[in-house]
Simulated assay, not measured.
Amino acid sequence: MSDSLDILIFGAHADDAEIGMGATIAKHAASGLRVGICDLTYAEMSSNGTVEIRKEEAEKAAKILGLTMRSNLGLPDRGLSLTQAYIERITLEIRKHKPRIVFAPYWQDRHPDHIACSHLIQEAVFNAKLRNYAPATEPVNVQQLYFYFINDVYEADLMVDVTESYDAKIAALSAYRSQFVTGQDTVATPLNQGYVERVEARDRLMGQKRMITYAEGFVSKLPLLVDRFN
């Protein structure tokens, strides 16, 4: 079996991809596509949980979603910046997995790491196709780069009907108990103050635009291509 992926999703932290497009991931994985997630950091600056706990939660979520692979580049949490070293690490990850489609966080968000991640992925997707960039590895021409929303939602270019796969998204988010559930040793953060419920309400509202129960929205910087209008 080929090691190449159909879809590769990048996030700054484990749980970013699940928040933004967990049901879309589950839907495509269940259909037989090879889907992977690459987290850029171990979220070591999180107010709740530990690196080891976050790793365990990410692995549990990966199984729920049906991922082919999940990796972590170990870049510094709250230290993401547009440096050549970080761009190269991400570029090589793209070349390793040869995805047809890449997803990145939308470039506007309340969390600076999500913004930085978005810009890093855009740079890496561009570099991945250049024959003379890191010539020891083969170039990869990603067919499409899409952006997903995490904390802040803007106007979507397209949406995916995820009604049938939405339970998998909620189950994957529930795997991150250290982030979304309050406990004796936790401190209050936006994530454990009804955040998952607000994400669900957001996805219901997105679906309402096309009279479906749940939808996840995405943005493309390139015009969407169709063969014809049906």
Score class of each variant (00 low, 15 high):
Q184V: 14
I115L: 01
E164C: 08
R198L: 07
L145A: 01
L82P: 06
Q208F: 10
L65D: 08
R202F: 08
M211S: 13
G20Q: 06
N127E: 13
G22T: 04
A14E: 13
S71R: 13
Q144D: 13
Y214F: 15
L82I: 13
R100N: 12
Q184C: 08
W107V: 11
L82H: 15
T50P: 01
R228A: 12
L5H: 01
Y42V: 13
G207V: 09
A172L: 07
D15G: 05
N192Q: 09
G66Y: 04
L145P: 02
S178L: 03
Q84G: 10
Q184W: 09
D152T: 12
I64S: 02
G207E: 13
F180G: 02
E88N: 08
R177F: 07
G207C: 04
A62V: 07
L205M: 14
T137V: 15
L225Q: 14
L120T: 02
G49I: 04
T163H: 02
I37K: 00
V160C: 10
S118N: 03
A30C: 02
P112N: 10
R204V: 15
R78D: 13
E44K: 02
A26H: 05
R210Y: 14
F180K: 00
F149V: 05
L145H: 06
K27C: 00
K221A: 09
V219K: 11
E197V: 01
R228N: 15
A61W: 04
A43R: 02
D157G: 14
I9S: 03
Q108V: 13
R70P: 05
M1Y: 07
P223I: 10
H114S: 00
Y176L: 04
F103D: 09
L73Q: 03
T182E: 14
F218Y: 12
I170K: 08
I25D: 01
F10L: 03
N127Y: 12
P135S: 04
A128I: 03
A62E: 11
V102E: 10
R100H: 08
Q208A: 15
T163S: 14
Y106Q: 04
T163E: 10
E155L: 10
S2V: 11
T91S: 08
D109V: 01
E200Q: 09
V51F: 00
S220I: 06
S165G: 07
D15M: 07
S46D: 05
S2C: 08
Y133K: 03
M1V: 07
Q144T: 11
R131K: 13
M69N: 10
D15H: 11
S46I: 00
T83F: 05
L82W: 14
S220T: 10
Y195Q: 00
D161V: 12
H114Q: 04
V153C: 00
F126W: 10
Q122F: 05
K63D: 15
E138F: 11
A124C: 04
V51D: 05
H114V: 01
M69E: 12
Q122P: 06
I150D: 06
Q144S: 11
K169I: 12
A171C: 07
G207N: 05
L67F: 02
Q208H: 09
T91E: 11
A116W: 00
L130A: 05
T50G: 01
Q122M: 15
E123F: 07
V51P: 05
E44N: 09
L80M: 07
K96Y: 09
K55A: 11
Y195F: 15
R78L: 14
Q122V: 07
A43S: 15
G183K: 02
A26V: 05
P223V: 12
N192T: 00
V142W: 05
P76K: 01
